[in-house]
Amino acid sequence: MLKMEHIAKVFRTDTVATHALRDFSLHVKAGEFVSVTGPSGAGKTTFLNIAGLLEPFDGGSYQLDGISVHGLSDSQRSKLRNEKIGFIFQGFNLIPDLNIFDNVDVPLRYRGFGRAERKRRIEDALAKVGLSARAKHLPSQLSGGQQQRAAIARALAGEPAFLLADEPTGNLDTTMARQVMELLEQINSQGTTIVMVTHDPELARRAQRNIQIVDGEVADLTLRQAV
């Protein structure tokens, strides 16, 4: 599904060059649930941005679902991102002016689906996360857990093969966090590959596999069995 080989990423300012990732290699198979942990500044976010095609990388190769990302134009990468990847953020990143229905609608619009198709997918996605009744609410009218579920619905609506989650439970209390986690596991069990960045070892352990990033490199590849 995801195949990164010797990825390097350097941030340069006028005086300093910071190696955020160096010789970073990772394979994620289809249907896997991988958690990524590591200390602050280790390169977790950079990994996520590169995996999500939000940022270019300086060296190495990256294949997403068999497609080599290197050398793709912005619109090709955007299309790939739109079709293959769903994003879940710590801060939910719902668009505050759009109601839940319209928020879920956003990626579908860029996908170019027709009106009926979009409506069906939005309703399905909202039903999946149990927010059908809240479709017309604005994000600010929902609790944190509900907002994150709405964000997950938005990520799922395009039926991506690959879900990238960045501290999905970071802003949530324990009960809510558990609910969201269960939802992700449920999604994974239906075949969607998930890569989740977290600093919570408890959560990390619930994934099938945990990867530690230290100083921009994969520190440990411990294969774990599913619970």
């Binding site: 999500g52 939000l54 912005d74 619109s75 990468r77 955007s78 299309k79 991102r81 739109n82 079709e83 990847i85 994003f87 953020f89 990143n93 719902l94 668009i95 002016d97 956003v106 990626p107 860029y110 996908r111 938005r154 395009g158």
Partner: peptide
Amino acid sequence: SSEAGVRRALGASRSA
């Protein structure tokens, strides 16, 4: 711009 960022993450190209 944060909204633009979210839209980019959800698949909007730069030209979009």
